[in-house]
Design a protein around this nucleic acid. Structure first.
Lengths: 205, 205
DNA sequence: TCTCAAGTTTGCACTCAGTGCAAAGTTGCA
DNA sequence: TGCAACTTTGCACTGAGTGCAAACTTGAGA
């Protein structure tokens, strides 16, 4: 009922189980390669039953994409905390710059790298971005009321996600998930550049 | 070897088989609802064996998303035919305005409507948009050489797809797939508005 | 026209994903 | 302490997805 107030033992247990399933899945994917293990293997490695795995995730692919959902949920949470008057693109870039230093980026980068080119996992990651875009639309609505056109809000939310995703992809291609300070600083640079282009309407200056 | 020159009987047969599978799938989804039929049902309705279904598609969900892939492939083909000097956003809007009147939009609209809120199919549709974005990146590279930054090209391609997708989603929500001339004209209006916002950097004028 | 190589469909058998259900185990609260 | 609510597990079952080899179709040359 009050998951924010009281992380009860039950909730802690569930979170821990979930976490161990995700870790086991990523681990297996790194060791054996994608598609070279079964849900039973994951369950064994995570110390739960096969049936319990399916209580948490609908497939191994979904479990592999979990870090991406986690990262974007965190981003969205921060968006809700931004000051009301702040321009939307400003909120977005501030949040992403802060998150580029966050612990959450590591598991997401791992998950992207390990599942690169593997369509089933990629689809879940795309879904994470898409759901986040929808939630941004809802959050903007909350913040600004109904003063803005649906098409404006939807396009903007989609473009913000696209720019964030583009920066992430270019960074992963360039640095292969290196998490050193200089590499992360490059990620921030890519984010800034990408949003500059968005703000300027992609003029070829 | 020369699929464009000679649509041989073999190629025609394959295309027809593929088409009948997609039609059978959409039909079943409309009649019974998503998830209320098996691949065997589809195969029977399409007049092929279950095994043949899997020679064409990896799942019923993929078959349902086929029209989206088809639409975006057509869009991309047109992009490759645009004049070299034309600004990229101009190419995009011209192509989409033309396609908003094309036959291809109907099956895509159907497929979107029938699978609305059904995650597995949605994921395939998102993949279609994402792949198209990658192909746009490649096409821009071909057109402009390596004069542009990776982050510029990736962000731009992503934003173009986002704006197209946003217009489509708002239109479907407003009009529920009505394909009358006035409804299609509204779709074009949404596309134009969306791209105007993109070109102006989403200024709140 | 006949023939053969290459491409396509099909049936079969098999593994494993995913789910409903009920029994067993755990936690929260009075 | 004891009961109600929640979570895990085992079991059984349907159907997805795939490798393989046999049957069938098509294209092209003799």
């Amino acid at each position: 009922m009050t998951p924010l107030e009281s992380p009860s033992r039950r909730e802690l247990n569930k979170a821990a189980t979930r976490e161990s399933i995700v870790e086991a899945t990523v681990q297996l994917a790194r060791e054996r390669g994608l598609g070279e293990f079964t849900v039973e293997d994951i369950a064994d490695a995570a110390g739960v039953s096969r049936r319990t795995f399916f209580n948490y995730f609908s497939s191994a692919d979904e479990a592999l994409a979990a870090p991406t959902f986690g990262f974007l949920d965190a981003a969205l949470e921060r968006f809700r905390d931004r000051p009301r008057g702040e321009p939307l693109l400003e909120s977005a870039i501030q949040i992403l710059l802060a998150l580029a230093d966050n612990k959450l980026i590591e598991p997401m980068a791992q998950s992207f790298l390990v599942s690169h080119g593997h369509d089933p996992v990629t689809r879940f990651q795309l879904q994470a971005f898409d759901e986040c875009s929808d939630k941004i639309v809802a959050a903007i609505r909350e913040r600004e009321g109904d003063t803005l056109d649906a098409i404006y809000v939807h396009s903007l939310a989609g473009c913000v996600m696209s720019c964030g995703k583009a920066a992430l992809e270019v960074w992963l291609a360039e640095r292969g998930g290196d998490l050193s300070p200089s590499s992360l600083s490059r990620l921030r640079e890519l984010l800034v550049t990408s949003f500059e282009h968005l703000k300027s309407g992609f003029k070829t200056s």
